[in-house]
Design a protein around this nucleic acid. Structure first.
Lengths: 346, 346
DNA sequence: CTGAAAATTGACAGCGCTGTCGTAATGCGA
DNA sequence: TCGCATTACGACAGCGCTGTCAATTTTCAG
């Protein structure tokens, strides 16, 4: 019961192996009747082309590489992100007869570029998906580009020019969240910014400003405090805001960890959420649901983004070096309304 | 700057391609001086063998399949586990010239078996690693075994007979933790059991009993309460234990979530941790570090286990159908002492 | 009908590597 | 030193497929 090869199929169908190859690869210029005969033989022998042989002969594989920051360095809140992206790519792969090769890598190492190149040399992937924050690092992107491998970047937040990439509308959705808070009657909506190096996080702040404007509220420096993405900074910023004589009635933090910090500090100060204070976050981490009260937040469509990226690659849309064809696809983020937000007091 | 092939290396090193092949594959019977020369040439040309060609010629791929429960179904606390295992397999792959193919799968679906078989048929992996809890499901294991693919099971907790598998010493390490608590002067050490269906969790309880005995403490039914692995059950069990007239001075929970529940309830009851009560958990989840006080717990060496499993596969140790050769490799778990445990009061 | 263009099919040479097996070099006891 | 067992190395035939290009058949305008 040895596995059938292309020769067996050819013989059974009474054609040459090349014709079988054409049928299997859905190439044109095969008479319908011939195609049928071959397909019947394929089915009869349950023939599956050997991937290794295909790859070797065609100089390309049906692998998709997913490159992301090595989460061991980040202490695993990022695990959820990574898993989501893997899921997304995998589901695109399933419908595209491809496989996923994961490649966590640590950009802090000197030789990441070389490592990537050697990975690509060995496996000759059909394309590479680079996730944020790596997708914004020239060192990484350039190494991949130099191999001539199609590349799609997943960058949460910013639209980038002449590359294939998929992004979210961080800015728009933050405006939307701000408008939502305003629509609940909040007049003093504070914002806690995050790590200024993180491009996407900066966009969120801009979105907040947009939202204020759209709601007819005026922006005030005093309502903005700077966090660093950590829970602790959320507590500190929350405390600062809430101890004022005229505290905000809503606080929008640039990520869930900081929002959780705010909730914690509100609890300590005896301020009820959401009755006296509304809190909103960003990311929709597991934490957001586990918290009490559960957190109103914004969900990044990581899985869909990854799926779109993989599909772009699989459809061969990214082989085109023509810069004009390049562009960014936007997958919208969505607001998750939960218990931590409510009507403004009074 | 076309990619270097084995011929280029052979020419530069002044040997035949076969010798290069031997060096690259770490085969024996190559003189040290020759090996060196070849390695130099490899480095100089940054030669990387083409996987497709290798696979085609050798009739086996250098892919390792990692099969685990689809975490989407579990709502992502499992993401950390999955990532750890991926890391482990990857690091074994790096030193073994192999690649990792991940395959999350949902055992609740009827056709998991068929899915697995077709994945294996297409990619012909060198071996499959099955992670818990899938590794304990005959449906899954049998489907893989029927393809003749070498399989290594990662089962946290239980030694299993005639299979290749890698496990941890749940029982021993729980005894150790219990002894540690006893050594701090605790006489009344309570235990909160978990989901009785979870084999590994049962072992933990046995280990606790061992530890008491080793420390010369007598086991008492009264100090054991049954949780269900959830935070809530930890709170409930903790409350029951702590409201007694002669409460335990240390509580060892079969997982971190329940331990966190105990910490929470202690806080509510005004009992100081660790001054008045020591709490220990199991799993070393992210929660354990984030909690205040941070939790003394037991870290499962998931990454090392996965690495061991991959190495077994890569070394071809698992091709042997000889049942006697099969066995379980134990990678010890380690105690992480943090802030939630301290000397017994008084 | 006829010739040329278009559509269809096949022969065959690799792709880059490993397995087999034969040959050359080396070690070693006497 | 010789003879023989080892050890080290190389020549070469594929692995199963795709790309190239030539051969064959079909189509169709004139």
């Amino acid at each position: 019961m040895a596995r059938a090869t292309i020769f067996d199929v050819a013989e059974l169908a009474g054609v040459s192996i090349k014709t079988v190859s054409r049928v299997v690869n859905r190439e044109p210029n095969v008479r319908a009747s011939t195609r049928e005969r071959v397909e019947k033989a394929v089915a009869e022998l349950s023939y599956r082309p050997d991937q290794s042989a295909r790859n070797l002969a065609s100089h390309r594989s049906h692998l998709i590489g997913l490159v992301y920051d090595d989460p061991a360095a980040y202490e695993l809140p990022s695990a959820g992100y990574v898993i989501s992206m893997q899921q997304g790519v995998l589901s695109a792969c399933r419908s595209g007869l491809a496989e996923l090769l994961i490649h966590p890598c640590n950009y802090r190492q000197k030789d990441v570029g070389a490592q990537l190149k050697s990975l690509i040399a060995e496996t000759r992937p059909a394309g590479i998906i680079v996730a944020a924050p790596l997708s914004n690092m020239p060192k990484i992107v350039r190494a991949i580009e130099e191999t001539g491998t199609p590349i799609v970047r997943i960058s949460t937040g910013s639209k980038s020019g002449k590359q294939y990439s998929v992004a979210t509308n961080d800015r728009d959705v933050c405006a939307e969240m701000t408008c939502y808070l305003a629509s609940l009657g909040h007049k003093r909506i504070a914002f806690i910014t995050g790590d200024p190096n993180h491009k996407a996080v900066a966009q969120r702040f801009t979105g907040y400003q947009d939202g204020l404007e759209q709601s007819g509220l005026k922006f005030s420096d005093r309502l903005v405090v700077a966090g660093d993405n950590s829970f602790g900074s959320g507590e500190a910023c929350g405390e600062e805001l809430l101890k004022r004589k005229n505290p905000p009635t809503a606080i929008f933090a640039a990520n869930d960890d900081m929002a959780a910090g705010v909730v914690r500090v509100a609890d300590r100060l005896g301020i009820e959420v959401p009755a006296q204070l509304s809190v909103a976050g960003f990311d929709d981490t597991a934490l957001a649901r586990q918290l009490y009260p559960s957190l109103t937040t914004i969900r990044q469509p990581l899985e869909e983004m990854a799926e779109r990226a993989a599909t772009m690659l699989l459809q061969g849309k990214c082989e085109d070096a023509d810069a004009d064809a390049k562009g960014t696809e936007i997958v919208p983020a969505t607001i998750q309304i939960r218990e931590s937000t409510g009507p403004a007091p009074g």
